[in-house]
Design a protein around this nucleic acid. Sequence first.
DNA 1: CTGAAAGCGCTAACAG
DNA 2: CTGTTAGCGCTTTCAG
Lengths: 335, 335
Amino acid sequence: MTPRAGGAGPGSRPATIIDVAEAAGVSRQTVTRAMNDMPGIKVATKERVLAAAKELAYRPSRFGRGLVGHTQRTVGLVVDDLMNPYYPQLASAVVSSARDRGWNVILAQTAKAADQYSLIADLAKQADVVIGYPALTDTQAQEVLAGVPFVRIDMGEYTYGGGVEMEVDDAMGDLADHLLERGSQRPVLLDVGLPGFPSARGQSFLTAMADRGVRVPTVTAASKSLSSGVAGGNALLAAHPDVDAIMTFNDIVACGALKALHEAGVDVPGRVRLAGCDGLNLGRFVSPELTTLAVDMNAVAESAVGMALGMYDGEVPLQGVRARVAHHLLVRAST
Amino acid sequence: MTPRAGGAGPGSRPATIIDVAEAAGVSRQTVTRAMNDMPGIKVATKERVLAAAKELAYRPSRFGRGLVGHTQRTVGLVVDDLMNPYYPQLASAVVSSARDRGWNVILAQTAKAADQYSLIADLAKQADVVIGYPALTDTQAQEVLAGVPFVRIDMGEYTYGGGVEMEVDDAMGDLADHLLERGSQRPVLLDVGLPGFPSARGQSFLTAMADRGVRVPTVTAASKSLSSGVAGGNALLAAHPDVDAIMTFNDIVACGALKALHEAGVDVPGRVRLAGCDGLNLGRFVSPELTTLAVDMNAVAESAVGMALGMYDGEVPLQGVRARVAHHLLVRAST
DNA sequence: CTGAAAGCGCTAACAG
DNA sequence: CTGTTAGCGCTTTCAG
């Protein structure tokens, strides 16, 4: 019945420090000293205590411990879906960054959750700070997080909490230069969203090209998925048969477009140059490897974790701080 | 100085239930009732308490809570590296599975850790059960985990704790049939490891083919990485120019081999059929999409989480239990 | 070197 | 409906 995690049979309750103290014939403090490698304990006593602890399968309660020295810190990381290759790169970096600072990471995934509102509310109860991409409005986030320091990644128009922005404009300029230098004359943007409402990064490409005197038509895919990229690629080829370069919303869509190009027998980069965005590792698995606007995820994670921990320590205000991390052009074989 | 997570200035300590009780002019118990939506409290009182709580940026301590009702449960998940596309699929499934049962997941990554021994020791202190792929011997695991229920995924020859096995033999037979039906006469295995020491799944392919009267030569790649797959693919083409089918150690190596085939101008599946193993989503991003021996990660996660939680509840022995999940042939375009 | 006392923040159980 | 009491398991004083 009672949960236990030791060696004896089902039904027995977990051993406490008192059980160990009695078994070893010492006081609780002495058990503490033995378990935590503290000084001021005779070697023989220590061994006796540790033996008793092992015998009873004693494990110090993290709650008892946490209560006394507020030393057990946890960041809650909210991602949409780890199956989307974007998020593991972030999660990996956040976990490393947090670990370097002695924090744990609890992971929450909104995509598969029935009710992400309560998912994040629960997370906020278990974590000391929350980082990530919750699909919540500012108002919702404020309610749900109830004062827990919060850093939104890729904050955009949101304002509640802190944010880490990823800036694409400079790199987009570099990409435009790169494509034009290679002789592109009829580039097309494969954006995601609603036709007529370019994404921020899509608009950035259009602007960069316009600044260079090139007008770029847009084809819009329905979503950020692979299949949507395939469909978008086919639609783009149909609408612009003479296209010679494609900039896509992100690397996933780019992979879809690449598949469409392959199936249509279009050589990349020979006849069409293709670029993605995000700098996913995924881009190295396809042929040709994908040119992309990459962002250093370690820098993003470092920045987000640092900001959140600063908020926790009261050194960074809970509102209004934004960090910025720039994309950079990563030229691979597809352009 | 003191860590805080509320609204007031740096240096103030976090508000406790007592602060709120005093501010609202009620007892602690009433604060508890208000915070936890418990019955037996007048609406007006509740509102007053919640207002005071908000004012003081009060957040109930998870340690105080955890101490009283052992209700806050956490599984520790050990993966090698989230940047490897294999692990996110597992992690995603484990997080979902755990969440369905009301457990949290703390993530630990061994690849980037300086000392994974202490990494896992720390994890075992924060978690009630541990699941994953720790690169630890049985002896090390036993020491480090100190009695925490432990389920190793893809247990193989290890014996400490419980395990979830992934069985590949049946599916490998199906793959052999599939390749032979399509007319393959000179299949080659692209294995990973040391030459002369086939991996379990490599051996399974050799055996399946031998059972069908086909002797399969092996080429061995150095590691399970993409670049190693490229190198292995090139070596394989050099050693067996007339190959007409390749089974690879896993999907990542298969992607590498596919790149090598592409660059060599070898049509897939026209001239060479290519299969991977693991069933990664990644296989759908390349052209042609990769045939693979897939394993249902949700089933693996469900099984591992269920077993670990059963151990925690004392309903499953801490040692010697193994679950099995079978691979299945997933035919896509590359064969 | 060891023990006794006190308290971390919270909630269940029992009064009132 | 509200308050009081007791105790969860641990570590930090402070005495011996």
